[in-house]
Amino acid sequence: MRPPVRAQVGHAHPDRTVGPLTLTDVVRFAGAGGDFNPLHHDPGFVAAAGFPAIVSMGQLQAGMLAGWLSDWVGVEHVREYEIRFIAPVFVGDVLTLGGKVTVIRQQGAERLATIELTAAKGDGSAAVLGRATVVVDG
Rank of each mutant, 00 (worst) to 15 (best):
T102W: 10
G98H: 01
K100E: 14
W72E: 04
A30G: 15
R6A: 14
T133N: 01
G98A: 02
R111V: 09
R16Y: 09
G34S: 05
G108T: 07
V9T: 11
V89P: 09
T17Y: 01
D71A: 15
P3E: 10
T114E: 11
H11V: 14
M64W: 13
A113D: 01
L21G: 08
G10R: 05
H77D: 06
I86D: 07
P88A: 07
G138P: 15
D42N: 12
A12D: 08
R111A: 07
M64C: 05
Q61G: 15
D123S: 03
K100W: 07
L112P: 05
H13L: 06
F29Q: 09
M1N: 10
V101I: 10
S70H: 11
V103G: 00
G58P: 03
G58W: 04
H77Q: 13
A49H: 08
W68G: 02
H40T: 05
G19N: 01
P43V: 05
D93W: 05
R111T: 15
V73H: 01
A66R: 14
V78H: 11
H41M: 01
G44E: 15
E110M: 11
V73L: 08
A119H: 02
A53N: 14
V91W: 03
T22C: 07
P3M: 12
G108R: 08
K100F: 09
V134T: 06
V5K: 10
Q59C: 12
G98Q: 03
V78Q: 10
V128L: 13
A126Q: 08
D15V: 15
V26L: 02
G34Y: 00
V75K: 13
A87N: 08
